[in-house]
Every structure is written in structure tokens, then in C-alpha cells.
Design a binder for these strands. Sequence first.
DNA 1: ATTTGAAATGTAATCGTTTACTGGCAATCG
DNA 2: CGATTGCCAGTAAACGATTACATTTCAAAT
Lengths: 389, 389
Amino acid sequence: MKNRARNKLANPNGAITMKKVAAEAEVSVATVSRVLAGLDGVKDSMRDRVSQTVARLNYHPNTLARGLRLGHRKVIGVIIPDLLNPFFTGVVHGVEAELYRAGYTLQVGHSDGLAEREQNQFKLLRSEGVAGLILIAGNKPTANYESLRPFGIPTVAIDRSPGGLAVDLVCANNREGVRHAVSHLLSLGHREIAIINGPEGINVAYERLGGYQDALRSAGIPLVEPFIIHSDFRQQGGYEAMRRLLDLAKLPRAVVVANNLMTLGALQAINERGIRIPEDMAVVCFDDMPWATSLRPPLTSVAQPVQELGRTGAQLLLERIKDPKRPVRQVVLATRLIVRASCGALTAAQVELPAPPRLPKTGRSAMQTSSGLEVEAGTTSNGFCIKNL
Amino acid sequence: MKNRARNKLANPNGAITMKKVAAEAEVSVATVSRVLAGLDGVKDSMRDRVSQTVARLNYHPNTLARGLRLGHRKVIGVIIPDLLNPFFTGVVHGVEAELYRAGYTLQVGHSDGLAEREQNQFKLLRSEGVAGLILIAGNKPTANYESLRPFGIPTVAIDRSPGGLAVDLVCANNREGVRHAVSHLLSLGHREIAIINGPEGINVAYERLGGYQDALRSAGIPLVEPFIIHSDFRQQGGYEAMRRLLDLAKLPRAVVVANNLMTLGALQAINERGIRIPEDMAVVCFDDMPWATSLRPPLTSVAQPVQELGRTGAQLLLERIKDPKRPVRQVVLATRLIVRASCGALTAAQVELPAPPRLPKTGRSAMQTSSGLEVEAGTTSNGFCIKNL
DNA sequence: ATTTGAAATGTAATCGTTTACTGGCAATCG
DNA sequence: CGATTGCCAGTAAACGATTACATTTCAAAT
């Protein structure tokens, strides 16, 4: 490669630097810095002089220089598998809301669920000197998160547990959520209940399946192998899965779909076949989305506290940044079953109510480790389950 | 405030620096830098020695230091009004896809549509030394973008034109899109057509209204005042707007809803009243969303090229960064009318087709300036309309 | 008036890069 | 053979902040 054009100036637009402020106010840069940092030991006269000059010149500190000197800056990296999945962006929204208050900015990397891009984004963010990392891991259980460990960046995982990486985790109580949904179906008299689940090998799918099994088991209903389908958490996957279910000789009469996008696909397949909801097929969606109430009939769903996941993750991260040595924690947030009309629980009259009645939170719930093991844990005043690992 | 804890070290985890690599490889830092930058004028023997050491020590350059020295870095700021609106996140996805290829990361700020937060985010990003800015402006026409001008950061606006700021803009052909949708309704025999539009005073809403008026005018149908409702681009707003329409003495028989979220609200209202689509009310949604095909009946919609908006914006930004003095441009992308069943255009049999027939792109279309003035412009091979202003 | 010491301010090193400039060395030329 | 050239590698000065340390100031105490 030829030598590139030289003399690319830094600061081409002649931005106001601290030096200029200092010169203008006839003080030293140290004084300016001290005033800006709000340190004491500066005379009021000086302080005023500097403040006025700062305002007059419209000075804004260069956070790069600051970050270089300090070794960190007020930026949090976020790695997200899919910007098109409203669940993830909802989480990011929660993260943003919480971190903005603390003066942080978000640097977002999109992994596409690919382990390789995830690694790449991680390195990029590390180079950028982010103060912490929010990781929403992808679908691939193969990803080697262990290699991220030595980077030593404070990290919090949300929703999915990155295998082999001992970091703080915030997730919804997947098992309990699905258990609740299936119990609801059972209470309505359903017996042939199918589940369209996420990919095998990732913990959230495993846990959701666990909830399904729990509910059927305690009702004494045997599992029907073809009623359990593993798909990919995407719309097309949900569509295909539902078609497979509808092609079975013995049809299910109810289906729990394990995330929002797959539900859209499943509905598509159901509509194509002209099958009626809830008369022919009851549907529950794991994830409550804005469109749930716009469907006809409105969709019964298990609401994850989407933004709360993000907020809580952000809080944990801030605490970990403050104290990197604190013990690793998991926070499991309760889900909420929102009963609408897609399971036949409500009459047509009730359906027309603007705000459908909501069941109370699942509340106190069992703690699950990432291995799926159940551990009894206390519920905090916030309704969280917290466990120190 | 008391003096804070001193001696916070930079580089607390003893990260590998270029200096260490240089020492290890027994060369100067300049040589390491040259090798890493791929400059020529370095002997192969040296080059190899450095490369190996870099690999062995797993060195990653500190982009902060780099950015400080260079005055810019490979980070693009993105300001977005609402992370919960899938249209915006879709755009960001497109932006990300394009910029990732060019080695950039995204620093995302969320404005909530508030002019004040927008300003704030802008300042934050500027302090962070971003190389460029993608701005999706909020709903408030009051925002004072003029003050952003002197910051001199290469900027591209997407979707909405930030009033008073002469920057590159990428948007969909809103006027033509709505015109097309209304023409479609007219061709199906509809005459009482309402529109639930965005807030007054922002250009996209103005343009969409223009398309509505164009179509009715050329069909010789007079405007009916109460059929035109300005709302806020949000779900609740759409819900309320639709209720207002349904409370009219003389009901419309078709409605165009000017964005995705408002459509969800409108559908909710329609369902609550037990009104049938398309028999009692035809519905067209501006924005094609994943759930459009999952509704019963599937929704006819005007698809904006969401990701393409983002991609194109990113391209324009890269070009502007390369040449800050190039003339300001507007790129208007064609929309596409996707006919499904919500207007009664298709029979039930057709509706069941997996892939509904699609009308051709609107293709060659009139160029619109942000003032709503139409200007004839050429169509590029990409189907873009480009105009130098 | 001088000493003392705390308080206020300034000086300069530092963070990790990039790159203009300098100098060493070998090849080429008159 | 000395001068000129071109190639390589190294030295050191930025970039814009923070902050340890040095210096000045100034009031109170001797």
C-alpha cells in the first residue's frame, strides 16, 4: 500500500480545548480541570471566571482524551443478536433508559446471533475502552465465551446465559412462565397441547420446555413426542413448525409458541389453513407484544418484563463497575400471564373490554440456575429473585 | 464536593500496548505502528517479526488513543426517537449492516422524540468524537437543528427532514406511497376514505397527506374534513383516532393509517367494535411489518424499504465523511404497495397463497423536496431518485 | 518582622497512538 | 573516491485531558 496522505490534522475544525479556555480565562489548565470536576480548593473568584469562560466559548470536554487518561469512559457496550426482534430492542430500551440517567452512552454491536461476529464486536468494544458490557447472547451454544473472560470488562448477560461465562445474569422466569401458560390451557380443558420451542442447546429454550413438561406432568398427561417442536425463534421457523403440527394425523388443539416472532409465523400458518382461533386451536404466545391486542382474537400471552430486564441489567452492571469483586448474581424476574381471547377463556363480550382483566403476577417463584436446576430463593421487595452464586 | 479518590490508574489490567509489543519485538513503536497500518517502507523481516509478536501477545490497539491523535474514529453516532418502534430499529439495522462492513461501530442515542434530549445526545456524541452522525429526527417541529450546524459533524438525516438543517436526507416517497394506496382503494370502488395521519408540522406527515389529497383530487372526490385525523404516530393515538372515526355519523368505509404503530391501535378499535375487515372497513397500513401477514385478514400495506433507508443513509454518510464539501443531496426511495386481503382486493382463495402477488415497485417517481414541492428527477439504476440541492 | 503552614495555583508527566523529522547505511553516479 | 540519492528505522512531538508534585500566596502565629 502506498503511503497515505499525510498531515491529517487532529482537531480540524479548531474545536475549543481546555487549553484555550485556560488561556482565555488567564488561568492554568489544571484550574480549569478542577473547576469542571467540581473539586474544592479553588477560590470562588477563579471558579466564576472559569465557568463564565467555559460558557462563553461553549466548551465541551473531549471525552476521548479523558477516557485515555482515565482508562475508562462513560460508555457501555451492548451486544445484541437481532435488531429486528422487538424483544431485544425492548431490552435495549430499558438498558438505555437506566444508563442515560447515570450519564452513560450506549455503543451497540449487532451479532446476528453468530458467535464469530459476537467475538468481533466484543474485541471492538474492548478496543473502544467501554466501561462495561451488556451481553444478549446469540442462539449458538457453541460460542466460546470463556475467551471473553480475561478481557476483564464488567459484564452482565441478559435473557440468555452465555455458556461457561460466570457473569451476572438477568432473565425472566421462563420455566414458571410457560408452566403457568400451560396450566391455564389445562384449566380450560385442553389436553392436546403442543409447543413450538426455541433451538435445542440454549438455556431459555430448555427452561421453557421444562415449564411445559412440569405442567403436563403435574396434570398427569403424558408427553406426545410430535407435539414438541424445536425451531429457531424466527418467523419463518414458526411458520414451518406450525405447518408441521397441522400436518399431523392427530392434531393438537392448543399451542404454546415460545417467542414473539415464531408466533407471527405460526399465526400465518393457522390463517392459511382457515383454522379458527380459539375454537379449533388455542394459542398462547411467550412474549407480550404491541400487536397482541390488535389481533382478532386478541392473543393470550406470557409477558416478560422486557424493559425491566434491561433496567435491572443496567443496574447490576453499574454496581459491578463500582465493585468488580462482588459475587456473581442471577436475577430472575417474574413473568405475567395475560389472558385474552385466543384460548377461549373469555367470552366475546369480555373481549371487547378495552383493558382485559389481568391475572396477578406469578410472584414468588422458584429460582433456576442456568443448568436448569431449581433452587428455592427469597423474593425481594421488587418481586425479584436474587441469588448469589 | 470533597476531593475524590486519587491515583485511579489508567490501564488497570495492564493491557498490552504498542510499546510492549515494540519492546518484545525489539523494534521502535513507529515500526509497529507502520506494520499495523500496512504502510510500506518496512522490510519484510521486520514486518514478520512485528506481526508475530502482535499475534503472540494478542495485541489490540487502543482506539481511544488512536482517535485522540487522529481527531476522529471509526464510530458513527445514531440518534433515534424511539427504540420501541420497529420502523426505526429496522432503519438502524440497515445502517449497522452497511457500516459494519466499513469497520464502523454504532454509538446509539435515544431521543424519545424530545428536542432537548436530541440536543443532549448530539453534544454527547460530539464529545465522543464520532466520525459522523445518522439522525432520525423526532416529532417535534420545534427542535432547533440550526444550532447543530456549527458542530461540523458529517450528518445524514433519515426519514424525517430536520427543519432548518441543510444535510443529506434519505427518505421514502411518502407522497407517492400514500397516493398509490388511496388509488388502490379507489380502484376497488371505495369513496369514503379516511386517513389517520401523523402530527401536523412534520414533513413526512405533510407529504403523506399530500398523497392522499392527490389521489382523491384526481378522482374528483371532494375532501371530507372529519375523515382527516392528525395523531401522533403511536399505538394509543391510532386507537383514539380510529374511535373518533367510528363515532362519526357518516362512517368511512376505508382507512389509510400513516404508520405501523397507529395501525395497531386502529385495528384494536376496529376489533373492539366488531367491525369486519374488509367488508365493513378496508384498511391500508403505511409500513409493512412482520405482523402484517399474521393478521386475519392479512394487511394490505405500503412497504417502505426500511433497511434500504438505513443502508443508503450509511452510504451517503461514508461519502460525506470522505468529502465533506460535496453538495447536499436527497435520496428518495420508492415505496411498494403490497396488496393483501384487508381491502377486499383478493378472494379468500388467493389469500391463502403463501406469497401474495406483489405489485411492481412504484418505480420512476416524482422528486419531492422537503417543502413538498415536486421536482422531476431521474431514477438511478438502483431505483433511487437522487437530487443535488 | 519573620516564621509557619495551609490553601490556591501552576508545571509537567502521563495515557497510547500517529507521523514529521532525523540519521544511518548502502547503492549509484560523476 | 566523494557526493548524492533512496531506503529504513528510530526519536520525539503532538492529540486533550487528569493529577502528582512544585511553587506561590497569604494570613496567622511567633
